[in-house]
Amino acid sequence: MGAGGRPPKYKSVKEMQKKIDEYFESCEGKPLMINGEQQYNKQGYPIILDRKHPTITGLALALGFSGRSDLLYYQKHKKDSDKFYDTITRAKSRVEEQMEESLFHKDSSNGAQFALRNNFKGWDADKKQEENKTEGITIVNNIPRE
């Protein structure tokens, strides 16, 4: 450990990308197999076990960081952050894309909206517009004074 703090977690983009790919693959889950045969639900879709939505925090933990903020710090402030910036940004965009897709599903739409507004730039436009609205009350003080 030198004067700059902890050594970087990753020596190469390739090493980091491998961990990122493993994380997204783990989110896909596994097909339910019985006696070597894929099982399907009533609508004819394959039954997938342990599928989960990828998240920024999940990505950070899979990469060995303590949490989301450590990943974001690593992306922007580490000595070698330039070489990891695109890799981390692309991974975050994959999480964002999955959340966008969730907007079209009734059961996950509200959670996806919340996550997008609070974790990704540009999704809080509605909130900013509401904050900028001014419903003014005009006070007219035209009582003559003597």
Results as ranks from 00 to 15, higher is better:
Gln17Tyr: 00
Arg90Ala: 15
Ser108Ala: 07
Asn132Gly: 02
Ala91Glu: 08
Gly67Leu: 02
Arg51Asn: 04
Tyr10Thr: 03
Glu135Gly: 01
Glu135Cys: 05
Leu116Gly: 08
Ser66Arg: 09
Glu28Leu: 13
Pro144Cys: 00
Asp107Val: 02
Lys11Ile: 03
Gln43Ile: 03
Arg51Ile: 01
Glu100Asn: 14
Leu32Ala: 00
Asp107Gly: 01
Ile143Glu: 13
Gly2His: 06
Gln129Ser: 09
Gly64Thr: 01
Pro31Ser: 01
Pro46Trp: 04
Ser26Tyr: 03
Asp80Val: 01
Gly122Asn: 08
Asp50Gly: 00
Ala125Gln: 12
Gln43Gly: 11
Asp70Gln: 13
Lys128Ile: 13
Val95Gln: 07
Asp126Pro: 00
Asn141Met: 03
Tyr23Ala: 04
Lys121Ile: 02
Glu101Leu: 09
Glu100Met: 14
Leu116Phe: 07
Glu130Asn: 11
Tyr40Lys: 02
Ile47Tyr: 00
Glu96Phe: 06
Glu100Phe: 10
Gly5Leu: 09
Arg51Gln: 15
Lys11Phe: 07
Lys14Tyr: 06
Phe65Met: 04
Ser102Pro: 00
Ser12Glu: 11
Ile48Leu: 00
Arg94Pro: 08
Lys133Gln: 13
Arg68Gln: 15
Glu37Tyr: 07
Asp86Trp: 01
Ala112Gln: 02
Val95Lys: 04
Asp82Ser: 12
Gly64Ile: 01
Thr55Cys: 08
Gly4Glu: 10
Pro7His: 12
